[in-house]
Simulated assay, not measured.
Amino acid sequence: MIIIILAGVFAGLLVYGAIYDVLERIIPNWVSIVIALAFLPAAYFAHLTLHQFGWHLLVGFIAFIAGVVLFYLKAWGGGDAKLVAATSLWMGVSGGMTFLAAFAIAGGIVAIPLIIVRRLKIEPKNERLAKIFDVKKVPYGVAIAAGGFWAAPKSLILINALNAISVAN
């Protein structure tokens, strides 16, 4: 039961981070921190072996280093880098490549409308719409969440959560 709750927290925070990123163009630090911290009990209740746990940590660490590099190259925001690293912890090796591929594709899809708005020089009159269609910052939180949901069926932790749901029914 606890693994189901933790998987729900993970999914809910991905959605929250994506929506917040669209509206404010920032992903709050606490979202990534809670996702990363929730990974620890989730790994325990998903019965990951120490070997599997280590691989999940390694994937998260590599994602964090890549995110830091992209942040310093000004390709990503800091929130994007932290959310990718936290989500990668949950994906591990089994879902990591799928997550990165889905995240990259979704990132392009998210950027296309903003590129169109920039090229057409459309400037919404409504302040909220102007912020949503701010072409200077792409809300990659949406792409990160999409990649996380796409790769979820390959994550050992989330597979165990789905199995717990089917056993409960």
Rank of each mutant, 00 (worst) to 15 (best):
L6T: 00
V15H: 06
V15W: 08
G17Y: 00
R25N: 07
W30D: 11
V31D: 00
V31F: 03
L37N: 10
L40H: 09
L40G: 13
P41I: 12
A43S: 12
F45G: 03
H47W: 07
L50Q: 15
L50A: 13
H51I: 12
F53A: 12
G54C: 05
W55R: 11
W55T: 12
L57F: 08
L58W: 11
V59P: 01
I65Y: 12
L70Q: 10
F71E: 05
K74S: 12
K74V: 10
K74Y: 09
A75F: 09
W76Y: 14
W76H: 07
G78E: 05
G79Y: 00
K82P: 10
V84N: 06
V84G: 01
S88R: 01
W90Y: 08
V93F: 15
G95L: 04
G96C: 04
T98I: 15
T98D: 12
F99P: 01
F99G: 00
F99E: 04
A101L: 14
A102T: 03
I105A: 01
I105G: 00
A106Q: 02
G107K: 04
G108L: 14
I109P: 03
V110I: 12
A111N: 04
L114P: 00
L114N: 04
L114Q: 03
L114S: 05
I116R: 06
V117L: 07
R119E: 15
L120Y: 10
K121G: 13
P124K: 05
N126A: 09
L129K: 09
A130G: 14
K131H: 13
D134F: 04
K137F: 10
G141P: 02
G141R: 01
V142D: 02
F149N: 11
W150C: 12
W150T: 15
A151Y: 01
A152M: 09
I157S: 02
I159L: 13
N160T: 12
N160H: 14
N160G: 11
A161C: 10
N163I: 13
A164F: 08
A164I: 02
I165E: 05
N169C: 08
